[in-house]
Computed example of a mutant assay.
Amino acid sequence: MKVGIVGAGSIGCYVGAVMQLAGAEVHFLLRPRMAETLSVHGLRVSDLRGLDRQLGAESLHLHTEAAAMTGLDCLFVTVKSADTAAVAEQLAGVLNGSETIVSLQNGVGNAAQLRQSLPNQPVLAGMIAFNVLNCGEGHFHAGTDGAIMVEECAAMDELASLFAATQTPFEWQPDMVAVQWSKLLLNLNNPINALSGLPLKDELSQRAYRRCLALLQTEALQAIRAAGLPLLKLTAVPPSVLPWVLRSPDWLFRKVAQPMLRMDPLARSSMWEDLELGRRTEVDWLNGEVADLARRHGLVATANERVRELIKAAEQGGRRDFSGEELLTLLRA
């Protein structure tokens, strides 16, 4: 199978490497800086389950022009949500209609945007439930548990076997709307983690930070219920009771939600990594999406609006070392 990775950052490099290890011919469309890094160091992937494999630089198909994506069997779009429109425009000029596109991105609207911009291409919604950290020198580490989920498509059955080879969890899903909104609920921790300056495990082990997340999720759940949107259980805890579990004392949280803390001690959110690298974050496609949904149904999502403001300030060099108590006070104000 010939696969393209459109936007080979942390997620794209990891997913592409896993498929190449299974025998796929993978072509990476990436920025010149990343192409230079991989051409020197090759591509290494690891995870918390023990995977640790290296692909030599000579085995990688690295490209900086979208024309290289023409005629491949499947393209995984892994760019940040802010770049979806621009990438779709680039692809529109080179694809021939035979390539199946999988949107493997955060947020809930990227697949729809790709369908609108590329009406002649089959587009599948997808989601990745684990975090991948760029460790430098071509090494990408999956530090949390979770699966890759893709909208059911019989024509793409071969994809499942490509992930099975490295025991990377993969699932076909009949209802990606439920998956995407359920994942968005979990992704509301991204700004909390980014503003804490802590690894995910340390942050989630502190009740004050979890109470911040509970505030954001409570607002999101209210909006989701008002909109009549479906949800799916992606963790050991059903979505409807997540805020209650997060607000629980540390000893009870560790007992009830132990699988939520099964992660690499150094794992971080993608939003933390974006801020570290001086990139625009996806806060508008996460907390902004919640605020917009609430507004459309006569509700307010004050905490989500405030955390969005804090992340916007952090993008301009503002604080990223808030204690849990400081952050909770700001979100409640």
Rank of each mutant, 00 (worst) to 15 (best):
R306F: 12
A17Y: 09
V241L: 06
I224S: 04
K233V: 15
R44N: 15
D83L: 12
S205M: 13
G42N: 04
A111W: 05
E151R: 08
R49M: 12
G56S: 09
E151S: 07
R31C: 07
E203V: 14
L246M: 05
L327F: 13
V290L: 02
L242T: 11
N287Q: 04
A291C: 01
L38P: 09
L221W: 03
M19I: 14
G93L: 09
C212D: 06
V87D: 00
R332P: 01
N96T: 15
G136V: 00
R332N: 04
A314C: 07
A257F: 12
L234T: 01
R262A: 14
L198T: 02
L198P: 02
L184R: 05
L104W: 05
H61W: 08
E152S: 13
G4V: 08
L30N: 03
C13L: 07
F253R: 03
N134R: 02
P239L: 12
F28Q: 04
A194I: 05
M19D: 01
E65L: 09
L75F: 13
L159W: 15
W244H: 06
M69G: 01
E151W: 10
V177G: 05
R247P: 07
A35C: 05
E137N: 09
A155R: 06
V108L: 05
R49A: 10
K312C: 00
L104T: 00
M69V: 11
N193A: 14
V283R: 00
S81I: 08
V77F: 02
Q217H: 12
C13E: 05
L293V: 00
K183Y: 07
C212P: 13
A82M: 14
T218D: 12
V237W: 00
P191V: 08
R296E: 00
L252E: 04
C13A: 04
M176I: 10
F163Y: 14
F130H: 14
E65V: 13
K233R: 15
C135M: 15
P238K: 01
S117R: 15
L185Y: 08
M260H: 09
A155Y: 09
A57L: 11
V237L: 08
A67Y: 11
L242G: 00
N131P: 09
